[in-house]
Computed example of a mutant assay.
Amino acid sequence: MKNILLAVTCAAAFAGVPSLVFAQDAAPAAAAQGSEQERAAVKELLAAMDVRKMMLASFTEMETALPQMMRSQMTAVINADPTASDEKKQAAMARVEQVLPGAIEAINRMFRDPALVDEMMAEIGPLYARNYSVAELKELAAFYRTPLGQKMLALSPRLAAESMAAGQKIVAPRLNGLMLEVMQNAQAK
């Protein structure tokens, strides 16, 4: 069960949000920092990017990709345990299949919570106001209004999901080895 929880946690960690996430409104943190010009420039950029829609689309992509990612991760962890017999591996996979739907539904509920988007936007938005000048924010907004900028926004959720899958493909074998080492060390104690 600990292995299942650990793998679910690792899979959930891959459920990140694309890097193009900004705050939509002058949240308390943003209101306390920056000039009216900065807040207006950030708001203009966010309008050009339709950030809320992009975040929701990213979450939808994650809901689609998550079951297979988690199943693959768990299968790899179970099969990588050289101390487990075939029967033990089959029993572990049966437990995964029992637990996985509930875990996926819980994570999907989290993605569907409207407060999640609001909270993320309120926390992340001020970063951009601190790292871009007003002129740069305006240039970014202008770019996102171009056909190429709109194409980039439209592709961002899918590219984020595909990038995450590629990252998992590369990281999963390394993570599995580390998890196996941790499990073996825990059993030795």
Rank of each mutant, 00 (worst) to 15 (best):
L56Q: 14
T83Q: 13
S72N: 15
D118A: 14
A103P: 00
F111K: 01
A165D: 14
P28T: 04
A57F: 04
L159H: 04
K43V: 03
K53P: 00
R174I: 08
A142R: 12
A166R: 08
M110D: 15
A76G: 09
L140R: 12
P147Y: 04
L148K: 12
F22T: 04
P114S: 05
F22S: 01
R39I: 07
P18C: 04
L100E: 13
A7C: 15
G177R: 12
M93C: 08
P67L: 02
A31Y: 02
M49E: 03
L180I: 05
F22Y: 09
L66P: 02
A84H: 03
M55H: 04
P173S: 10
A27H: 09
E36C: 02
M110H: 12
K151A: 07
D113G: 06
K169A: 15
V171G: 07
A57R: 12
G177F: 02
P114F: 01
V8D: 03
P126C: 01
M49C: 13
P67V: 02
V171I: 13
N79H: 11
V51A: 13
A15Q: 13
V21Y: 09
L178Q: 12
A115F: 06
M49I: 09
Q37F: 04
L180C: 03
S163A: 11
L116N: 08
E61V: 05
M55N: 07
A84I: 03
L20H: 06
K2Q: 14
D25E: 15
A94V: 05
A161T: 08
M183S: 11
Y128Q: 09
I78S: 02
A154D: 11
A141S: 14
L66F: 12
V51H: 02
D118T: 15
M55P: 01
Q184I: 06
M1H: 14
A12E: 06
